[in-house]
């Protein structure tokens, strides 16, 4: 009898976890405020000293050297034991071909554990969306939908015009 209750409890708890996972998996969210040096969107006014780079930006810089997109960069963290990493790579590669000035950089999480800790990456795939200054503006953990990726880039580069979306 105890076993039957245990079964019901486990299935109920797992269903709750599963529904939560389904809701949040791959959603593109704003990056934590601490990652964004300037409040508000857009560039800082010219007469204000630029903020010192965040620890995140400093850690990312050597990995991204020469690979930053002109307008935006999508940084994907992947690992060997990751089912959705391959599909995520395909989506991001398609988008980077479709949207001019956007690059896609894939990083092996296990080979860059220090960076993973600094950026507090907990799952693979995790995708960071960087603006043209290399600042992390948005992120998604889990495989994002293509439409959400395109929408996130649209928010990231409002000045560039998103003609390709029409």
């Amino acid at each position: 009898m105890t076993g039957l209750w245990a079964v019901l409890f486990v299935l109920a708890a797992a269903t709750a976890v599963g529904l939560w996972f389904q809701r949040n998996n791959g959603r593109v969210k704003d990056a934590p405020v601490s990652r964004v040096p300037m409040a508000g969107d857009g560039d800082p006014p010219a007469d204000i000293e630029p903020e010192p780079p965040t620890a995140e930006a400093e850690a990312l810089a050597p990995v991204l050297a020469g690979r930053l997109g002109e307008h935006a960069t999508m940084v994907q963290f992947s690992s060997a034991f990751c089912q959705p990493c391959r599909a995520t790579r395909r989506i991001l590669e398609e988008v980077s071909v479709m949207v001019p000035g956007v690059s896609h950089v894939e990083i092996d999480a296990e080979e860059n554990l220090e960076l993973v800790r600094v950026l507090d990456i907990r799952r693979t795939p995790t995708v960071l969306f960087l603006d043209r200054h290399g600042v992390v503006r948005k992120q998604a953990s889990g495989q994002p939908r293509k439409a959400d990726v395109v929408a996130a880039l649209g928010e990231l580069m409002p000045d560039e015009g998103m003609d390709f979306m029409i």
Binding site: V10, A13, V17, F21, F81
Partner: peptide, 20 residues
């Protein structure tokens, strides 16, 4: 059982998530 059920019902691989 929780891990197997999450995998079967939600395609959520608990072990894989724990890996990183």
């Amino acid at each position: 059982l929780a891990a197997a059920f999450l995998n079967a019902a939600f395609n959520f691989c608990l072990g894989c998530e724990m890996y990183l």
